[in-house]
Amino acid sequence: MELDPLKVEKMESQIQQLEPRKGTTFSRTCFNGINTLSGVGILSIPFVLSQGGWLSLALLFSVAILCWYTGLLLQRCMNANPRIKTYPDIGEVAFGRKGRVTISVPMYLELY
């Protein structure tokens, strides 16, 4: 018994519709990221305040401002030269080959 090619194609498309999709959407990824960061903040800020007092909150706010400013500097650096994609690239542009190695070694050791 031979199957009709149109029926086979129709069955394959129905099977593909039933199979779960792999991956996630951009909006779900953003939602999960915000939930993670919010959860960490909800748990950590009261603990920080209980252990360090109000001064710790000022320190936490200062660290947040420093991280924001560092992000702006990295953005400027990456926009200035289109071939800069990683931290070692920034080190090479700033200090040559020695800068690239100096940044690469601790970065990759930390990942290891």
Rank of each mutant, 00 (worst) to 15 (best):
M1E: 05
E2G: 06
L3V: 03
D4G: 03
D4K: 06
M11F: 05
E12Q: 06
Q17H: 06
L18P: 00
E19R: 02
P20M: 02
P20T: 03
P20V: 01
K22T: 03
G23H: 03
T25C: 06
F26K: 12
S27D: 01
S27F: 03
R28W: 01
R28S: 06
I34W: 00
G39E: 01
S44A: 14
P46H: 05
F47S: 11
L49K: 09
Q51F: 15
G53L: 09
W54D: 00
S56V: 11
L57Y: 11
V63M: 15
I65D: 08
I65C: 13
C67G: 13
Y69H: 12
Q75M: 08
Q75R: 15
Q75Y: 11
M78L: 09
N79F: 09
P82Q: 11
P82F: 05
R83D: 12
K85V: 07
K85M: 06
T86H: 10
Y87S: 09
D89S: 02
E92R: 12
V93F: 11
V93P: 06
V93N: 06
A94D: 08
F95Y: 13
G96L: 04
K98F: 04
G99T: 00
G99H: 09
V101A: 04
I103N: 04
I103T: 12
P106C: 08
P106Y: 09
M107E: 06
M107A: 08
E110S: 08
Y112G: 14
